[in-house]
Design a protein around this nucleic acid. Structure first.
Lengths: 123, 123
DNA sequence: CCGGATCCGGTCTGATACTG
DNA sequence: CAGTATCAGACCGGATCCGG
């Protein structure tokens, strides 16, 4: 995995379209779910794995790697032996908050029974 | 195609997570690109096909169907013989504007050389 | 020629098993 | 616990075909 999507990346850069370019990074089924969990204080591999969508371990590992490569996530060693890492959003990652927020607002308005933003943000 | 993703949909509904739910609709590589083009006054199949990302015709047809089923897009007959349809965002679809906007803002800030929002919105 | 539908090879996903 | 390996099958996307 982690093949470089060379062709898409070229397309993106050539067109210089901001939508196309960001979708190269977060435009798949799982990445934004991982970002969501990182926003809501899940930081270890285990925590991230425990989300209701049950992300497969290999996909999770791959997405974390990609997010790190893109500079949205940074790894931090929190235990020496055995080595354990926690994952945190960088500033660049945290800047996705308006995206997250607008997605939630839309869902709350248009999809019945989704958990309300106000309830989520009680932290 | 257009298989119903039954399992994911169940997961989404069970968790009631707004992020998860909206990603069921727009969380793939192409859908948001189609939405982008609809925002920027491309409405025929041909127009949509002409975007720099060169979406394959079968994928485009599939995404338009899904978007219609989700109620984000409506089709309008604009020519009788041969039948020709134009695609428009519904109100629900237009409500994605803040999502679109936040994505563009993020790209402008973090990805070099992407076309600026101000330039795009000169319409 | 336009708007798709169909076919098909290759890639990626994701369930499971496995390792340190 | 935190990942890596494996592998069948789903899905993507390129090419082609077809009705109007």
């Amino acid at each position: 995995m982690l093949i470089d999507d060379k062709k898409s990346a070229e397309d993106c850069h050539r067109s210089r379209c901001p939508v196309s370019c960001i979708l190269e990074i977060i435009g798949d089924k799982w990445t934004l779910l991982v970002v969501r969990d990182l926003f809501f204080d899940n930081h270890t591999f285990k925590d991230l794995q425990a989300s209701p969508e049950k992300i497969p371990t290999n996909i999770l590992a791959d997405r974390l790697k990609r997010l790190e490569l893109s500079g949205l996530v940074r790894r931090e060693l929190y235990q020496q032996r055995p080595k354990r890492y926690a994952y945190y959003l960088t500033e660049k990652g945290l800047d996705l908050e308006p995206v997250m927020r607008s997605l939630i607002v839309w869902s709350n308005k248009h999809i019945a029974d989704t958990i309300k933003l106000e309830d989520i943000l009680k932290e």
